[in-house]
Design a protein around this nucleic acid. Sequence first.
DNA 1: TTTTCTTTTGCCATTGAGTTGCAGGTTGGA
DNA 2: TCCAACCTGCAACTCAATGGCAAAAGAAAA
Lengths: 136, 136
Amino acid sequence: MSHLENKLINRAIRPTAMRLLVLQYLMEHHAAVSLKILEEQFYKSDKSTLYRTLITFEKKGLVHQIDDGTGMKKYALCLETCNCAPKDQHFHFHCTKCSETFCLTGQNVPNIALPIGFQMQKANMVIKGFFANCSH
Amino acid sequence: MSHLENKLINRAIRPTAMRLLVLQYLMEHHAAVSLKILEEQFYKSDKSTLYRTLITFEKKGLVHQIDDGTGMKKYALCLETCNCAPKDQHFHFHCTKCSETFCLTGQNVPNIALPIGFQMQKANMVIKGFFANCSH
DNA sequence: TTTTCTTTTGCCATTGAGTTGCAGGTTGGA
DNA sequence: TCCAACCTGCAACTCAATGGCAAAAGAAAA
């Protein structure tokens, strides 16, 4: 049984051919992945299959969704130990030149003073800017 | 000249009737405002006028846009002293029960260690959770 | 292996937020 | 008063996201 299959099974996701391919693609790409990118990559497959694959991955905690303001939801792999709890939340950065979005997994979101009675579940943290040496 | 008019003129926005009404609405509502909400509020006006009003307000630095993951862009008034620089960026929180989004203006975004060569311009920081006593 | 049941996939259509072009109306300055 | 620039309303369009349904694939039982 391959490493990829294990990653899916560990998250209670049935390892179909399509899912293994999408997982492989996610692992090979450091930037967060949009549905559109997947459609281009797997042009023989259907949009809704890829869409539902991402939904399944997210529901099972394999990926998390990032809303970087480009109008397209993006997805990035969670760390092995992640279960998307408040303590697992991290920042992302979005390059306005190349429009790519990356996880900043080195540091987690610090404690933020919240109004009384407010309970944090998740976060969507995106820093926007650019790489000085971005190729775009 | 009214306080509302001054607020627009200070940001180099011509104070038309429509803009004054939208500004007033923004000031009266603590939660961030979506285009849809404005459409419902000003049903006699046109969607594109309201849309362009928000665009103008944002371009002139009167409001900032928040992407809270609901699929609808929301807008909230900037503080008087804000010019949307990195130092002006703050967190927001989004209640998953009532779907409202608020500015946490008490504290700004702390320094975040960025990869070398990456320059921050703006941020979209949204904490998701719920109010214990949310009415929804 | 064959049958049966559940899950996944592909195709197609739809929704809805966001956006644009254009013509007519409004505003402010010369 | 007149002109030029700006604003508004209408209508259409774009495009990401999503849902229904039947066929295909996979898992489990016989």
